[in-house]
């Protein structure tokens, strides 16, 4: 049982129809992720108190039904002062279309403490394509690990990305073997071009794609290109 649900369950001791609905884990859409995101603005020490209070408000609003996204947004508008309000609303608007049930399932499948975290992050990224903030918040909640700790892992390890991929994922091999064969040149040119025309390309470099005989090797959306072929394909994409 999650902290949230535990708290809600305690409240439901006083018979109120709304309390039971949320206690049963009925969160419509992204409402749970939004609720947790809202609480992130509250200092750690006060979060428990705020959680209880805000949960009560949410239950009243839900009136026995599932907690909807609009309910959480209303609470933010009515109760949260600036500048936290703008922060939260901005975060809501950039929230990806993430199915939190999938994330919960992943966490459930990896029982244990800190040592399970890297596996969990890999699994989330495999499902979502990146590590969405709301997913990390949920992991932090359920594993009782500081969010900052998770972000440290997500940003220090090269396997993880915290922003979604764009239309073209261009992976340039930057291994020494490819560098000797002018892979570095391709990377430099791309870095320049992508910064100007970056809306379609996520540029990543890796240390070895495992096909040194095709060097300089470039992978575009999973398809492998070597040397001149790669240049031609990149030119096509940049033209788009």
């Amino acid at each position: 049982m999650t902290k949230t649900k535990k708290m809600a369950a305690q409240k439901s001791a006083t018979p109120s129809p709304g309390a039971q609905a949320v206690a049963a884990g009925e969160w419509a859409g992204k409402s749970q992720a939004m609720f947790e995101r809202m609480l992130q603005e509250v200092p750690e020490a006060l979060r428990g108190v705020f959680r209880g209070k805000l949960m009560q408000v949410l239950q009243q609003k839900a009136k026995g039904g599932p907690a909807a996204e609009s309910h959480v947004t209303e609470i933010v508008h009515e109760t949260v002062p600036e500048p936290f309000k703008s922060n939260i609303l901005k975060a809501f608007s950039t929230m990806g279309d993430i199915d939190m049930k999938v994330v919960e399932e992943i966490i459930k499948n990896n029982p244990g403490g800190q040592e399970t975290v890297i596996s969990i992050l890999h699994a989330i990224q495999a499902k979502c394509g990146y590590l969405p903030q709301e997913a990390l918040i949920l992991v932090s909640q359920k594993k009782d690990i500081f969010l900052s700790n998770l972000y440290r892992l997500a940003t220090s390890y090269t396997a993880f990305r915290i922003k979604p991929l764009k239309k073209y994922a261009v992976t340039v091999c930057n291994g020494t073997g490819c560098h000797v064969k002018a892979g570095g040149q391709i990377l430099k040119e791309l870095e320049k071009k992508v910064s100007g025309n970056g809306s379609l390309i996520t540029l990543e470099k890796v240390r070895c794609l495992g096909c040194c005989d095709m060097s300089p090797a470039v992978m575009i959306n999973g398809e492998l290109y070597g040397g001149a072929q790669a240049q031609a394909r990149i030119a096509e994409i940049l033209h788009e």
Binding site: Q114, L153, S156, Y157, T158, A159, F160, R207
Partner: peptide, 20 residues
């Protein structure tokens, strides 16, 4: 599965990575 860091080839860094 590792997280992707060259330094994890060093045995004590690797142990840290295994511990999450």
């Amino acid at each position: 599965r590792g997280g992707g860091a060259y330094v994890c080839g060093e045995e004590t860094a690797l142990l840290n990575a295994l511990e999450g």
